[in-house]
């Protein structure tokens, strides 16, 4: 805990960061006063899921130096496997455990697929590539994304494969806003997963080893960590989280080849805002982006939801090139 305090106090020392945080708070208050409390509730629900997708992206970059352009496609894999599992279980639908089985299966599928991709692609590249690792892997993930999108189209077609809802009970009321049960489910899953990830990275032996690899690769090797296995595990975890998010949001994002595009954009916005490789920051930034989107959608029009955050991020970047939480990740991103 003292570690978190140390870290926080260091990050808040910068006036720019403090200013940005104040700005976000102002935005939240403005949204609630002029729009309504639903802006806050909406931001919490979507923010939690974006945080999940983005945390994986940040982890992959921090540990492996891979800026994953295919992260959205693992979200797509999650929606697809969620759909396939859920419809396969149609005989027992209505049982309360079915949604949980569904998202767990999606998590497993994403995890295994991620591990396979790392073994087939990145492990091979590591043996060969001597320079320009970050940009080369970025281009490779572009290729992976193209393959996954079109493999989906090839095998399952382009039509929407979705469900109406996981739960059909009456909505619950929070702060005067009615929230559908599926959204409550989504935020709970996200909260549990983020807490799990946080625990894993902070306190478990494996998680410490993953952090060790991200902080000092030769050092990790020197204490006996199988660095290659940690990288595979990292990519698998990150893919698994994205797939989990996809399956959880199946009621809102029916599966089709391009369903990953929006989560990809959002995850990247979040990760850039937080600073590449900063997992904790990504969680916070996930909520900020969701808040920004909710405000834009309500006050300017939902068509601008995609435009305003992008433009704003570039401006923020121009002021603070290492992101909101200014962790110097130079060694990794300067190639």
């Amino acid at each position: 805990m003292s570690l978190a305090v140390q870290r926080l106090s260091r990050e808040f020392r910068s006036p720019v960061t403090t200013g940005l945080i104040a700005g976000v708070l102002a935005l939240a208050i403005f949204g609630v006063v002029r729009g309504g409390t639903f802006i806050l509730v909406d931001s919490l629900v979507t923010g939690a899921i974006w945080a999940l997708v983005a945390a994986g992206l940040a982890l992959t970059f921090g540990v492996m130096g891979v800026p994953n352009f295919a992260q959205g496609e693992f979200f797509m894999v999650g929606t697809l496997s969620g759909y396939l599992v859920y419809t396969a279980l149609s005989g027992v639908q209505g049982r309360p455990y079915v949604p949980f089985v569904t998202i767990l299966m999606a998590l497993v599928v994403g995890f295994v697929l991620g591990a396979l991709v790392d073994l087939a692609v990145f492990s091979q590249m590591r043996r060969r590539i001597r320079e320009g690792w970050v940009m080369n892997t970025f281009v490779v993930t572009v290729g992976i994304s193209v393959v996954m999108i079109n493999a989906h189209q090839l095998i399952w077609g382009t039509d929407y494969k979705g469900i109406v809802a996981y739960f059909d009970g009456p909505p619950i009321h929070v702060l005067g806003v009615s929230v559908a049960l599926d959204r409550v489910f989504a935020i709970s899953v996200a909260a549990v997963s983020i807490a799990g990830l946080w625990w894993l990275l902070s306190y478990s032996r494996i998680g410490r080893a993953i952090r060790a690899v991200s902080q000092d690769e030769p050092g990790a090797l020197m204490v006996g960590i199988n660095v290659g296995r940690m990288r595979t595990l990292t990519f698998a975890i990150s893919s698994g989280l994205a797939a989990l998010a996809g399956a959880t949001l199946l009621f809102q994002f029916p599966s089709f080849p391009f369903v990953g595009v929006k989560p990809l954009y959002v995850a990247w916005t979040v990760v850039i805002l937080a600073g590449l490789g900063n997992v904790g920051g990504a969680v916070v930034a996930g909520f900020i982006i969701a808040l920004l989107e909710a405000n834009t959608g309500f006050f300017i029009g939902s068509a601008w939801e995609d435009v305003v955050p992008f433009a704003l991020i570039v401006l923020i970047l121009a002021v603070r090139p290492t992101g909101l939480f200014g962790r110097a990740v130079r060694s990794v991103w300067e190639q």
Binding site: R211, Q215, D216, P218, G219
Partner: peptide
């Protein structure tokens, strides 16, 4: 030294 600088 290759210490893990972000750890205690």
């Amino acid at each position: 030294l290759n210490l893990f600088t972000g750890m205690t």
